[in-house]
């Protein structure tokens, strides 16, 4: 980006003003670091991810061991997050549930981004496909997402459970349904960028040297669409985690033996008067995760917006 300016100055001036060359992503990182809340979000998200991934190796208390003498204890030394009605340790459960919650969020967004980018780039690049694909997008955008999610999951849960087992079946189901019902904004975004980018000279040049369409789409246009998609993906992960926990909270998500954060809240809601800690900690986990992700998304948007970089 700054290449022409450095070429103008002589070698001496160059060494006087020199700073290490920065790539586009290096620039973005430089901008991102200046966004304090985004950095705070990044730190706390890394902490949460590491805690859910490595935590169970450090805090080796069982997630499923039932001990009625220890039931509904408040937070303390033996159980930092307290225990549930069966005396199970809530810290251990929150950590293993967090893995599932975060994994669902990331996988669902990967699916939505893949679908959305594919459909959006096809619609934006090939004029003939534009109208039918956008009609399809409009229909999907008019679907009532939450009610439909609830219905589909309730109806097909048992079939998938038989096919893939209790945990994997529900995982595949929730990820694919969230993914299939959330690709539309990405498709619209990608299509809009493709429509303007395919008129640009560099695409014309690529076509002139005989690049096939697929190569132009993947090698030349797609990299230019990456940054808005990345921002949408980041915020999408937060939303997918919220959706999963909403489903689990309504009792339509994972089975009771997979303690996702939403599921813990679902179980906790009947004990609010004796054991508020049971609801508090999983709720805080969801809140901190989603808040961090949203701040990161905000920081990324600022960092990757070319209008803002000075």
């Amino acid at each position: 980006m700054a290449a022409p300016a450095t070429q103008l100055s002589g070698p001496a001036a160059l060494s006087a003003f020199s700073r290490p060359a920065r790539s586009l992503w290096g620039d973005a990182w430089h901008q991102f670091r200046r966004h304090r809340l985004a950095m705070a979000g990044l730190v706390s998200l890394i902490f949460l991810v590491v805690a859910t991934l490595l935590g169970p190796y450090v805090w080796t208390v069982s997630t499923s061991e039932i001990d009625f003498t220890q039931s509904l204890l408040g937070p303390g030394f033996a159980h930092p997050f307290g225990t549930d009605d069966l005396g199970r340790d809530l810290l251990a459960r929150a950590m293993s549930g967090g893995r599932v919650s975060i994994a669902v969020g990331v996988s669902a967004v990967l699916l939505a981004i893949t679908l959305g980018t594919t459909i959006g780039s096809l619609a934006g690049y090939f004029g003939k496909l534009d109208n039918p694909l956008m009609r399809l997008t409009d229909v999907f955008l008019s679907l009532p997402v939450l009610p439909l999610l609830l219905v589909i999951i309730y109806l097909f849960k048992d079939t998938l459970r038989q096919l893939f087992g209790a945990e994997a079946g529900v995982f595949i189901m929730i990820v694919s349904v969230i993914g299939i019902l959330n690709w539309m904004p990405v498709a619209r975004l990608v299509r809009a960028s493709f429509l303007s980018l395919k008129q640009k000279e560099f695409v014309e040049a690529a076509r002139a040297i005989g690049d096939p369409d697929m190569r132009i789409i993947i090698k030349h246009i797609l990299p230019n669409v990456l940054s808005p998609v990345l921002v949408a993906a980041t915020i999408g992960v937060g939303n997918a985690i919220l959706t999963e926990s909403t489903l689990s909270f309504l009792g339509l998500g994972f089975p009771p033996d997979v303690p996702t954060w939403g599921r813990l809240l679902f179980d906790a809601q009947n004990y609010l008067d004796f054991a508020p800690h049971w609801a508090l900690f999983p709720g805080l986990c969801i809140f901190v995760t989603v808040l961090s992700i949203n701040f990161i998304g905000d920081g990324l948007r600022d960092a990757l917006d070319p209008r803002k970089s000075s």
Binding site: S245, T246, G262, D273, L280, G283, I286, F287, V290, N294
Partner: peptide
């Protein structure tokens, strides 16, 4: 801005349960 971010990052069921814990329980 901070309140707005907190607002749409908190799942409504958690806000609801928190209000119940504080104002009812």
């Amino acid at each position: 801005t901070t309140f707005a971010f907190i607002g749409f990052s908190t799942p409504t069921f958690f806000t609801g349960l928190l209000l119940i814990i504080i104002f009812s329980v």
